[in-house]
């Protein structure tokens, strides 16, 4: 096989995804026409996009490390509640957000330390964090919504730039920045090494614990930002925000080309994965009329993504 063709292959995942997305768009507009194109439907498709982009982006880092983070949905909700409660009590916006992000970082760092230093399996550690933080959300709010947020906070996500909602601009900007820096900066680049082969990374002098802690911290931080955007956009804090969103994030990242066995991840692919998952959900809703299916779809998409991943890793071990 010619070298050129092989070098072309890594990008082919993104091209395939774009094609699939286009095909779905075309089919849907033929089958459902106006209904599909209606502004309300398009905005439904993209309503969760900004949060999912951030979560999936963070998840991509963790998957590159060969790990998994189930706590992102809870971090999202918890940070949202911390920030909105602070705002509710009259704390200025900047310090509130700062504290919220600090909480997110801390949660990620705890996971990273438990995983890298004490060698607790990532799913055990993050499952526990998920439970603790989700519980903490309910404890703090007693299940009530937190409303009465300052207008300027709400405008963070609701405002728009050149007609594009701020929250999408912010997510895309963060994701773009991290996507670029992920291969350019030594601290991020080392994640690929640690994920591909932790033993070899250690023998090559790469500080794997530091890298793992950084990865989980970044993942949590992004979930925290998503929490801030979500509370800002809805104009309230709620304990049930982000339930199940970790699954969509994992599915999107794996569909986008991140490998469950570590060492691989592609941020453009992840972004396309997020769009595809949202789109497939929408297709189901359009034909079935019930949004209740969306959880089931996430589950099936996850399995499909893993199966695709399997085909690729087979090629690698051959």
């Amino acid at each position: 096989m010619s070298l050129k063709k092989k070098a072309f292959l890594p990008g082919s995942r993104s091209i395939t995804l774009i094609l699939i997305i286009l095909v779905i768009f075309v089919c849907m507009s033929i089958l459902k026409g106006e209904l599909f194109y209606a502004a309300t439907n398009i905005s439904t498709i993209f309503s969760n996009l900004s949060y999912d982009l951030l979560l999936a982006c963070g998840m991509t880092f963790v998957l590159i490390l060969g790990g998994i983070d189930l706590s992102v949905g809870s971090v999202l909700a918890f940070v949202g509640i911390v920030v909105t409660m602070l705002l509710h009590d009259g704390t200025p916006i900047i310090p509130s957000i700062f504290i919220g992000l600090l909480v997110a970082l801390l949660s990620g760092a705890v996971n990273g330390i438990l995983i890298s230093k004490i060698h607790i399996a990532p799913f055990v550690s993050t499952l526990a964090t998920m439970s603790v933080l989700r519980g903490a959300c309910y404890v703090l709010t007693s299940g009530f919504f937190i409303v009465g947020l300052p207008e300027s906070y709400i405008s963070i996500a609701r405002g728009s730039m050149l007609g594009i909602p701020n929250k999408i601009v912010i997510s895309l900007a963060i994701m773009g920045f991290l996507g670029i820096i992920s291969t350019k900066h030594i601290l991020f680049k080392q994640m690929y090494y640690v994920g591909d082969n932790p033993r070899t990374a250690y023998l090559s002098g790469i500080a794997s614990s530091r890298t793992i802690i950084l990865g989980y911290s970044v993942c949590s931080l992004l979930a925290g930002i998503a929490g801030i955007l979500m509370t800002s956009s809805f104009g309230m804090g709620q304990a049930s925000f982000g339930i199940g969103s970790e699954m969509r994030a994992i599915a999107a990242a794996v569909i986008g080309g991140a490998s469950m066995s570590g060492g691989e991840g592609n941020f453009i692919g992840t972004a396309l994965g997020v769009i595809l998952v949202a789109l497939v959900n929408n297709v189901f809703i359009m034909f079935n009329g019930s949004p209740n299916w969306s959880t089931a779809i996430s589950g099936i998409m996850l399995l499909v993504a893993v199966a695709l991943d399997l085909l690729r890793t087979r090629e690698k071990t051959r």
Binding site: I68, G244, M247, I250, M260, N288, S290, N292, W293, S294, T295, A296, I297, S298, G299, I300, L302, L303, V306
Partner: peptide, 16 residues
């Protein structure tokens, strides 16, 4: 991963 996907699928199915 497998059982997580199964959990999601079933929970979604239940709701649906």
């Amino acid at each position: 991963i497998v059982t997580m996907a199964m959990q999601l699928t079933l929970r979604g199915l239940n709701l649906a």
